Simulated assay, not measured.
Amino acid sequence: MRRVIGWTLAVAAVLAGAWFGRKVPFAEQWPMYEGLRTTAAIIFGVIGAWLAIIYPERLKLSFKPANHTGPKETGVGQLFSPVVNSTLILGAILVIGVAAPIAKKYPMPFDIEWCRGISYGVLVALTLFQLWTVLLTLVPASTIKSFVDHEDGAKRALESLTVLNQKPKP
């Protein structure tokens, strides 16, 4: 149910962005695209650093010829989703950056306001996708925190048992 509500809100936001964005010239939209591109690039770098720090051996193995029958399950998959998402966002923005100046030079088959609206709708969609990607980057940190908390709890439990066993019996 939450998924349906989330998608409904996202579609409503994109449609509202497209409707109200009709009045926003592309020159005012482009800095927002650039900010989105920068954010996607930063996430790409951060996740790359996470991979290099957390899974250096797994990264080395990834580039060696496979000699096993199937892939081993690791937490690396949690890191690849934000990388793929950021790559898609960067790709879309790069294509828009190339296509927009060309599109400005030729007459459109429909009103320029609709072009602006479509552009702004795409901007809203990419922004929401980037927001989701930013949230996904927290998953590895949450996993590490949970693991550390579990290890700390186990250590405290072991220490409390050790203290209980060391007390003299009356």
Rank of each mutant, 00 (worst) to 15 (best):
R2C: 01
I5E: 12
G6Y: 05
W7C: 01
L9T: 07
L9K: 06
V11Y: 07
A12W: 04
A13C: 01
A16Y: 05
G17S: 09
G17A: 05
G17P: 06
G21W: 03
G21F: 11
R22L: 05
K23S: 14
P25I: 07
F26C: 02
F26D: 10
F26T: 02
E28I: 00
E28G: 01
Q29D: 06
Q29P: 05
E34Y: 08
R37C: 05
T39S: 15
A40Q: 08
A40I: 03
A41N: 14
F44L: 08
G48S: 11
A49W: 14
L51M: 13
A52R: 15
Y55D: 05
E57K: 14
E57P: 02
R58Q: 10
R58A: 09
K60D: 08
K60F: 11
L61D: 13
L61H: 10
F63I: 13
F63V: 10
F63T: 12
P65G: 00
P65V: 07
A66D: 10
A66I: 10
A66V: 07
N67V: 13
H68P: 00
T69Y: 11
K72R: 09
G75R: 03
V76H: 03
G77M: 12
Q78H: 01
L79C: 15
F80R: 04
P82G: 00
V84M: 11
V84F: 02
N85W: 15
I89F: 03
I89D: 03
L90R: 10
L90A: 08
L90Q: 09
G91L: 11
V95T: 05
G97V: 07
V98D: 10
A103H: 00
K105H: 08
Y106F: 06
F110T: 12
E113R: 12
W114E: 09
C115G: 11
R116G: 00
R116P: 01
Y120M: 09
Y120G: 02
Y120E: 05
G121S: 09
L123A: 00
V124T: 05
T127K: 03
T127E: 11
L128P: 00
Q130D: 13
L131M: 13
L136C: 11
T137G: 07
T137W: 06
L138W: 08
V139W: 07
P140L: 14
S142A: 15
T143A: 15
I144C: 06
K145F: 11
S146L: 10
F147P: 00
D149S: 06
E151L: 07
K155W: 15
V163L: 02
N165R: 09
K167M: 10
K167R: 09
P168E: 11
K169T: 01
P170C: 03
P170D: 09
